[in-house]
Amino acid sequence: MAKQKSNTIRESIIDAAIEVFARTGFYKAKAAEIAGKADVAVGTIYNYFKNKDDILISIFNERIGELTKSVRTAIEKVEKPEEKLSIILDSTISVLEHDRKLAEVITIELRQSNKFFSSTAIASVTEFLDLITDVIREGQKKKVFRLDIDPRFVSLTILGTIENLLHVWVLGDKVPELKSKYDISLVQGAKNLKLLLTRGLH
């Protein structure tokens, strides 16, 4: 019971931090704001997290970890590699499209942390990349995907494209000139990415 309550408090702090980071930015966010939103004392935050960087990295690890786990479970039920790839793209876009604040935090605010690249978050990124890479390799083995492209390059390209789609989507309302030229929905972006990956430009 105590553990369940502890997990609930921790989750409340993370949810509150996502909202505060998205609204005010990582650097300007105050622990008091997060505590107020989570309805806990400021000191309670430090029972669960070392500092703001720790909260930010935990947001990434836990949310991306949940996404990777759910996608892995979904593709285990599918045999065709091309369908697995489609599930990865659609699921990733869907999760972030339905949580714009989370999308903003992991695409913009996460870059503000100097500790991100030396943190455990890199393991979460690698796990997601490995998931894509394994699907591409499976497709090559089954002769569904071409053999002359490094699967690691494909996974990096997919991740980079998703990140840039999210970046434009999140910044669209704040940068009108960007939105006017690249106003593309996330669903449309995912569809175009799948076409590019499966059919190429020819």
Rank of each mutant, 00 (worst) to 15 (best):
A2P: 05
A2Q: 06
K3T: 13
K3W: 12
S6R: 15
S6N: 06
N7A: 15
N7W: 01
N7V: 06
T8S: 02
I9H: 10
R10T: 00
S12Q: 10
I13A: 00
I14N: 06
A16S: 13
E19F: 11
V20W: 06
R23L: 15
G25W: 03
G25L: 05
F26N: 04
Y27F: 15
K28M: 14
K30S: 05
K30P: 08
A31E: 15
A32N: 11
A32F: 03
A32I: 04
E33R: 04
A35M: 06
G36P: 10
A38P: 09
V40I: 13
A41Q: 12
V42M: 12
V42A: 11
V42T: 12
G43Y: 02
T44I: 01
T44F: 01
I45P: 03
I45S: 07
N47I: 11
Y48S: 09
Y48I: 13
I55N: 05
L56K: 00
I57S: 11
I59G: 11
R63W: 14
E66I: 11
T68D: 03
T68Y: 10
S70E: 11
V71H: 01
T73M: 15
A74D: 08
I75C: 03
E76K: 07
K80G: 07
E82W: 04
I87D: 05
I88D: 02
L89M: 06
D90F: 01
S91L: 13
S91F: 10
T92D: 02
S94E: 07
V95T: 13
H98C: 09
R100P: 15
R100C: 07
L102Y: 07
A103M: 06
V105S: 03
I106M: 00
I106N: 01
T107F: 09
N114M: 04
K115A: 09
K115Y: 07
F116Y: 07
F116N: 04
F117T: 11
S119L: 04
S119M: 00
S119Q: 12
I122V: 02
A123I: 10
V125I: 13
E127W: 09
F128W: 02
F128C: 03
L129D: 04
L131Q: 12
D134A: 04
D134E: 10
E138Y: 06
K142R: 03
V144D: 00
V144L: 08
F145K: 01
L147M: 13
P151I: 00
F153R: 09
F153W: 08
S155D: 01
S155T: 02
S155I: 08
T157R: 15
E163Q: 15
N164M: 09
L166W: 11
L166D: 01
H167G: 14
V168E: 05
V168N: 13
W169R: 11
V170I: 06
G172N: 03
D173N: 09
D173S: 15
D173W: 14
V175F: 14
S180A: 12
Y182H: 06
D183I: 15
I184N: 02
I184T: 14
V187I: 07
Q188D: 08
G189P: 01
A190F: 10
A190N: 10
A190G: 13
K191W: 09
K191L: 12
K191A: 11
N192H: 03
L195C: 10
L196H: 15
L196D: 15
L197Y: 14
L197C: 01
T198Y: 10
T198Q: 09
R199F: 13
R199E: 11
G200Q: 05
G200M: 14
L201V: 14
L201S: 08
H202M: 04
